[in-house]
Design a protein around this nucleic acid. Structure first.
Lengths: 340, 340
DNA sequence: TTGAAAGCGCTAACAA
DNA sequence: TTGTTAGCGCTTTCAA
């Protein structure tokens, strides 16, 4: 290890550069922003001074003058969920084209954290924000939007024509999954769902019920819905375990609101010496990358994550009119729900 | 859908609030920053004006005066990799305690993107940054650090005593994995590694070689190293497929530089009607959450991701001295490398 | 307890 | 081509 000195003194500013180069601050600013309007050798002198002083622009001062910046903020519900990280990657890829930079925040479904991020982005004057709203935050977003910051809702439909959105038809996705299970001959289905505070959970439940009704079933008989506190493997495992241990449920198939939940449910089966689809057919949601490689490859509902992020960023940067894009999900059938 | 009007006019500033409330700007500022120094009814008047005008502070102006902000920047190599997202979650959890906000960026191993993020953070005057440096960016980080911005290296040791770091002993982790395979009686091991431009790959290779030498083996005989362009499942699958199809390698065990690579390698086995550990023992790295639930539960090397992020943020916020923390990895043995 | 005013570092309009 | 200067919106010192 080496030791270097760390300067305590104030950072060099444009005035220091000007002084060292023997020019005016206006010229330094020109070198920085419109280099073509500066004589070659002046530019060289200034550049030398910049390097010598390790001059770094002060973004606050710059932005205070300029107004806007080449930055976009995005807020997702859970940074550890591949659905969101793949979406984030799509956003980045689109922003790169226009040399915009992404500031990513994760609300982790904590309203405080979310409003803090919202405020941070708005106060910093981002060019716009891409947000997956959580319960209750739609209100704030509408106000932010009214105040003039562009907003694109991510994985959520928009309540306003003027506020753009990119979403997936969750009702349809859940209906696809449910219909598939009914087609395999299952008469009674468990649905491991999340809390109603999460919009996706509400929509997916609607899809399940719609599919049952369309097949002429009475949901009161054919559906066992279990509500999980949190959409992770542990809660999925516990819920599935409870269902299995209780016995006499008559359930032969389970639809999980996401793949992590399904991961846990599969674990609960395995711990009891059971397996899918023999003892319980299983369908997940999101089609994460490991779904095909599980002990029993998992049937799941795929959503165009990367494309959604890309499109949302595109709506922000290049659209005249606020767009409203709705994608259709796709059922990917694998062994976990194969006829057994 | 409803339609709301979107104002084109300029945002309200502190002066507008002052005018509407019939006070001076100084008083408004006091209401915002030191409310206890303002008379109760004055405060109420000002608050009313703030609400009426939907006043939002301008962070640039504020910061231009103040100097620093309650924001920390972090740059990870790949936002879609659970290792980094779990680390990010750890960072957030620590920052929350001090009401700091995280701005997360992903370099995706693109040097341009990384330097853009570095510049963005520095220009914005973040309180500090937590960075997993990619090839070549250490230089820039040292300069940034010398200019006065605090830097904590994440998943990387520090070349300077003055620059804090949090890392895991990758040499040890790889040695653990290799020794384990040797203990199972394997004589010839494949190592699916990434490019030497990634530090982790270099260290893990060192660990593999060290373990072989310590066991009295000649790496030239007992090791087949395959270099992948990128550390994902597809490249892992292709590399493993190549090895298997070529035949006559004499390899009975494979160590993969991360779990995604191992995921691909397992897929390649399955596609050829083979399975681990019968036809090929397999060990991964990172111990991602789905490792226990794979067709063959995957042996892997676990790192304290959340703890690392938490600690890195803690070093930034609360340390007098720059700390240098090195964690020890842990081998989690599962069926994919069980004695066969 | 409140007000007036200086100034943070930069950009751009205008002057030379 | 270069220099001078007003002012972006805010915080804070000092005075009233």
């Amino acid at each position: 290890m080496t030791t270097t000195s760390r300067p305590i003194q104030r950072r060099a500013g444009i005035a220091d550069v000007a002084q060292l180069a023997g020019v005016s601050v206006g010229t330094v600013s020109n070198v920085l922003n419109r280099p073509d309007r500066v004589a070659e050798n002046t530019r060289a002198k200034v550049q030398k001074a910049i390097d010598e002083l390790s001059f770094v622009r002060n973004a606050s001062a710059r932005q205070l003058r300029e107004g806007t910046i080449h930055t976009v903020g995005a807020i997702v519900l859970d940074i550890t969920n591949p659905f969101f990280t793949e979406t984030a990657r799509g956003i980045e890829d689109r922003l790169d084209q226009d040399e915009y930079t992404l500031m990513l925040g994760s609300s982790d479904e904590d309203p405080n954290r979310e409003s803090r991020l919202l405020r941070l982005f708005e106060e910093h004057g981002v060019r716009g924000m891409l947000v997956t709203p959580s319960r209750g935050s739609l209100e704030s977003l509408i106000r932010i939007h009214e105040r003039g910051t562009e907003v694109v809702l991510l994985d959520h439909t928009s309540p306003l024509t003027t506020m753009a959105s990119v979403s997936v038809d969750d009702v349809r996705g859940a209906a696809l999954a449910t219909t598939h299970l009914l087609d395999q001959g299952h008469e009674r289905i468990a649905f491991l769902n999340g809390p109603v505070s999460i919009r996706q959970c509400v929509d997916r439940r609607d899809g399940v019920i719609r599919a049952l009704v369309e097949a002429g079933k009475d949901p009161a008989d054919s559906l066992v819905e279990i509500t999980l506190e949190s959409l992770n493997a542990d809660h999925g495992s516990r819920a599935m375990g409870g269902l299995l241990d209780e016995g006499r449920s008559g359930v032969t198939a389970t639809f999980c609101v996401n793949d992590f939940t399904a991961l846990g449910a599969l674990r609960a089966l395995r711990e009891r010496g059971m397996q899918a689809p023999r003892d319980m057919a299983m369908v997940g949601y999101d089609d994460v990358n490991f779904a095909p490689e599980l002990a029993t490859p998992l049937t799941s509902v795929r959503q165009p994550t990367h494309e959604m992020g890309w499109r949302a960023a595109d709506l922000l940067l290049s659209s005249a009119e606020p767009g409203h894009v709705v994608y259709q999900p796709e059922l990917v059938v694998r062994a976990s729900s194969a006829p057994g």
